[in-house]
Amino acid sequence: MENFTIIQDIAAIALMLGGVFFMLVGSIGINRLPDFYCRAHAAGKVDTLGIMMFVGGMVVHEGFTLTSAKLILIIAFVAVTSPVATHALARRALLSGLKIWERQEPLK
């Protein structure tokens, strides 16, 4: 029982650290990328995986309770809605004629 608690804590910490890493990468991408489409690319995929891993760490930390069932439901919702919301934003931006970014001068 003692070993199981240690393994559970290690798994939860590993999942949460992975989630923090992906959220950090997504935030840097949103700030640094030049275009709306590039930023949607950064926000749509990386943040989804980061939130899923973070909430997954919470599920592992919680164990088999009703709260972890609700957290798994949150994971399912985020996995469905976040890419679809990004798709809707990017599609509407493309249809309304937002220009795609191009590099102004060639690299030296």
């Binding site: 469905v80 679809v84 798709h87 809707a88």
Partner: peptide, 14 residues
């Protein structure tokens, strides 16, 4: 309002 089947399926399922 929109023609994208992805948004339709997601909304009608959610």
């Amino acid at each position: 309002q929109t023609d994208s089947p992805i948004i339709h399926v997601c909304a009608r399922g959610l």
